[in-house]
């Protein structure tokens, strides 16, 4: 990806992230993700209706990578079935870990395809995917 475009997408999502701000609604699943290896601290909440993700929201203090990745990931998961979401999350994590992945599923998330070159940023990029995975696991254990 062109580096200007990459920067523009990340910055747009950092400066004006989608769905930033939590709501007081007990029908949402909730999780906090406080990474052990960095100082980001974000709260996530997710609503699933009839097996589809109808809303994901987040808030907290985090770096440009965590914040933008939260925004882009939320955008790509809204309206998807839980099964589709798991597939996207799985491929996203494979990309971050430099494994083979299906590009066609990731869209703008591909802006992080070279993040592994900055090992101190890998956890930042993974943070929202770990949080959303946690909520999906909680849903499946209900």
């Amino acid at each position: 990806m062109d580096s200007h475009l990459r920067r523009e997408i990340i910055l747009d999502n950092y400066q004006e992230p989608v769905n930033r701000g939590l709501v007081d609604d007990s029908s949402y699943l909730k999780t906090n993700t406080n990474s052990e290896s960095c100082i980001d601290n974000l709260d996530f909440m997710m609503k699933v209706v009839d097996g589809k993700i109808s809303d994901i929201r987040f808030d907290g203090e985090a770096c440009v990578i965590s914040t933008s990745a939260s925004s882009i990931l939320i955008n790509s998961l809204l309206g998807k079935s839980v099964l589709e979401a798991k597939e996207i999350l799985h491929n996203y994590q494979d990309m971050i870990y430099e494994k083979d992945y299906d590009k066609s599923l990731l869209g703008e998330l591909e802006v992080y395809d070279e993040i592994s070159k900055q090992p101190n940023r890998v956890n930042c990029a993974l943070l929202p995917s770990v949080a959303i995975n946690n909520m999906i696991k909680e849903l499946e254990n209900m």
Partner: peptide, 21 residues
């Protein structure tokens, strides 16, 4: 600017600081 972004920025100039609590 989030503190960690500042320290990553300074690292580009070989300046080592610490970000966090």
């Amino acid at each position: 600017v989030f503190a960690q972004d500042s320290s990553v920025y300074l690292n580009h100039y070989n300046i080592c600081v610490r970000a966090g609590n």
